[in-house]
Every structure is written in C-alpha cells, then in structure tokens.
Amino acid sequence: MSLIVNTITKSFTNFAALHEVSFEARPREFIALLGPSGSGKTTLLRLLAGLDTPDSGSITFEGEDFLRLNARDRRIGMVFQSYALFRHMTVADNIAFGLNVRAAKERPSKAEIKAKVESLLDLVQLQDFGKRYPSQLSGGQRQRVALARALAISPRLLLLDEPFGALDALVRKDLRRWLRRIHDETGVTTVFVTHDQEEALDLADRVVVLKDGEIEQIGEPLELYRQPKTAFVFDFLGHANQAQGMLSGGSAQFDGFSVPAVSSAADGQITARFRPFESHVSKTGPGFPGKVLSILPAGSNLRLEVGLSDGIVYETQHAHDSEAATLRIGDDVVVLPTKVYAFG
C-alpha cells in the first residue's frame, strides 16, 4: 500500500527529462527528491501530481493506476513553489476551496467546512488570519496557508515543490521543523522537491538523489552520508576535497602515507575524496603539506583553508579546542585525512 514509481521515462523540450526512474514511498514516509536544477526532480513531482504524463512507465498508489486518473481526481495535496494562492480570496476561502468545489452530494456542510478551516488554521498557527488576503501575509505565512489549503482535501499524498525556496534563511529553518511536525501529526505520505542537501538530509526519512534525469542513489540521510554510491552524491552532499592516490587492499596510498578508504573502485589509480571534518591538521607528521590561508568560525567548529603548493585549496573543519585552534594564518601545516572515499 504505497506509492510505486516504476521505470518512468519522459522526454521534454522545456523541462528536464527523466530516464527509467523507479522508487517507492511507503505509507507515512517523508521523501525528498534532491538534485541540482535540470536533474528532473520537478518533472517527477509534476508527473506524480498528474500535471504531466510520462512517455512510458507506471505510477501506482495504493494499488491503483495513478496514470489513469487526472490531476483533479488523484486527491493529492500540492504545494506550489510560488504557493499559487488565490489572490482574490481570503485565507479561509483559500483553505476551504477544495471542499467548496466538490459536487453537492460529496460536499461537507457549511458548518463542517468552517470547522475544518478553523482546525487547519490552528494547525498552521494562523488562527487570527482567516479574514486576511494573501497579499497581506509574509512569505512564511503564505507558505503555511498553501500547506493548509493542500491538507484541507485530506490528501492521500502531499507533494511540495521547493517548499522553502522563496523564504529567507531564518524562516526556512523554523518552517522546516514545523513541516516535519505537521507531517508526523497528519501522517500523510509526503514527497518534496529540493535542491538544498541540508534541507533534504534534515527533513526526509529517505532521500532520492537525481542527476540528469536518472536516480543516483536512494537512501536514508545517514546512509547517503556514510555510504555514498557515486562521486556525484558525495560531492553534492557536502564539501569534498580531492587527492590523487593509489588504491590497494582497502587503503589509499599517497606520498609517504596511507589512509583507510571506503571504495567501490578497483585497485589502482584513484581520485580520493574526503570531507573537511574527516581530517586532521598539524604542524608536523604525515599528510599533504600546505599553508594556512584562512581560519574562520563555522558554528561549533573552526573552518580552515589550507593552500597546497600546486594551488589546490583544502577545506577542513575542527573542534575549537583541537590543535587547529593554535594555528595562525601563514603557518606551514600538513593535512591528514582520517578516511577517504573512492568511486568506481
């Protein structure tokens, strides 16, 4: 009883294409479609919503063939990137719209609709805003109205297109927590599109990483982080330092030292990647020699940039009480990764 997307292919002139995309969303699951622009994530969302039709493949939901239903019969709640609020209607009327347009015999009574709107306004914490118009709301408030409107039809599936794209950083973080809470309260299966890896990893139960219309990897956030399957996923999920080395027997050999490697590549010449926080910086010992270019605070960490002799710059992160804290700009140091990744 879940959403099953099977080998969907779609070619397009003005949207990104998709090639044999398959994934599954289990009931109550919170799925992120993550990818850079042009990866096809929005196209995929539009196909789920019924706003476009695939060239081939199937989409089923709770055993039902979704492709035979048009957008208005799928009963999905869609939150658009622009929110698409009805500008001439009050917040309350916006939320009630999906109920008001039902055929007379399926439509709840006026009192029921009113009660439903009240409870949704409560849920999105806009109790006193029912009589306002969209133009009188802030971006974050509009976003919440759009969500309440989508939830009003008791959707079987909730789809969100870049839900935080148009908001500033502070509101973003706030709404993220809040969206997660709403999801946990309502339990509706949710798929959302984002290009922000932090957002995807922070919110989703599982993340589908897309690139050029194909799926790179599907997995839980930690799994993606610890076991990225491709270089693209590794690079996309966070800053990646690169070094050339030789792989043999599970460790990577560099100039005079070796480091344990997580690898899908065959033994031989590799491009090794490592994260800023999976490295040590010290004045002496094995590692890549370089000069400290900058030292900046990055939240609970210190962020260093170390310039190597060949012009490469490594970014590293360390605790405030580590050896790195004693360094100054211009110091000669060595960067030693604690773990590197290599991809076949």
Partner: peptide, 12 residues
Amino acid sequence: DEEVAAVTLGAR
C-alpha cells in the same frame, strides 16, 4: 499557477 492549483484541489 492558480488555476492548476484549483485543479489539484478538485475543481472542474
């Protein structure tokens, strides 16, 4: 946008 939103909300 607004009309497409109306359709996804079930408007005919």
